[in-house]
């Protein structure tokens, strides 16, 4: 439990001391649905402060990996270690309290609640008052609730949503809903943030501002981020390392540069024969710039 309450400032110092140890280490992770292996022998190590991308064609098993990390699914075999703690077998809320937060591919806000309440719910685990304080609205309740609300408001201002605090979440424009979902995930004060296709359905302008936002929160909250994304512009633009999945298995790892030229990756996305095509295209482009 001690890891749950550790303040961001102290966690930063811990991170420096253990820079060589991965924050999240997944080994041999397998998930079977009946006869289908949705994730097969998946490995990844994420070090503190990194921004890692997880890409792959539709149905490759990326979101399943997220659901396994956050405890929504239970793995068939393998291990997921976060700061040395085994996550398999823990309840989703326990995993969140250890410092892992996520967003969802299809936005999952609390649709009928206000923007402010969406964030305040994330503070529930450290609200600082019990059920009897809640029933009586006593002094402790007043104090804790005031503090919690002010913190939530200041937090919303970090996402430029403070002017929207009283609005019902489902009435927000799409881009702001995405931003609120990220805000809510960060309100749970995580060290590891899992973003599931944050740019889905966004126009190029929104995507650009999302990329800025991801950079911004990463600096401000000392985050380690694992990102699933389809838009190559985002992945190639902000990720430092990329892991590529296909049919539940890892087919490639490396820097964005390496991944772009990886034959297996191109095949997975475009099919066989595409490698030759892409080489031709690149040659052509080379000619064009040369002359």
């Amino acid at each position: 439990m001690s890891t749950v309450t550790s303040a961001p400032s102290t966690s930063a110092t811990i991170r420096d001391a253990s820079a060589e140890r991965p924050l999240l280490e997944i080994q041999g992770l397998t998930k079977e649905f009946g006869g289908l292996k949705a994730v097969n022998n998946f490995d990844i190590s994420i070090y503190p402060g990194e921004l890692v991308g997880l890409i792959g064609p539709n149905g490759a098993g990326k979101t399943t990996v997220f659901n396994l990390i956050t405890g929504i699914y239970t793995a068939t075999s393998g291990s997921i270690r976060y700061k040395g703690i085994e996550l398999i077998g823990l309840q989703p809320h326990e995993i969140t309290r250890l410092g892992i937060a996520r967003t969802f591919q299809n936005i999952r806000l609390f649709p009928n609640l206000t923007v402010l309440d969406n964030v305040r719910i994330a503070y529930h685990t450290h609200a600082g008052y019990g059920i009897f304080d809640a029933f009586t609205h006593n002094h402790r309740y007043q104090k804790a609730e005031k503090e919690l609300t002010e913190r939530a408001q200041e937090f919303l201002s970090v996402f430029n949503l403070h002017t929207r605090q009283g609005e019902i979440a489902k009435n927000l424009p799409y881009g702001e809903q995405r931003r609120l979902e990220i805000a809510r995930a960060l309100a749970a004060s995580p060290e590891l943030l899992l973003l599931d296709e944050p740019a889905a359905g966004m126009n190029p302008k929104e995507v650009a501002s999302l990329m800025d936002l991801i950079h911004f929160i990463r600096e401000r909250f000392n985050l380690t981020i694992l990102l699933i994304e389809h838009q190559m512009r985002v992945v190639m633009g902000i990720c430092e390392r990329i892991t590529v999945m296909d049919f539940g298995e890892v087919i490639a790892r490396g820097t964005p540069q390496e991944i772009q030229n990886n034959e297996k990756v191109i095949e997975a996305y475009l099919g066989r024969g595409a490698t030759a095509l892409s080489q031709k295209l690149q040659e052509k482009r080379g000619y064009a710039t040369g002359s």
Binding site: R97, F104, R108, F110, L113
Partner: peptide, 10 residues
């Protein structure tokens, strides 16, 4: 509102 999101919020 959303059970899975609630779990993800701890």
């Amino acid at each position: 509102e959303d059970e899975i999101a609630a779990k993800a919020m701890g």
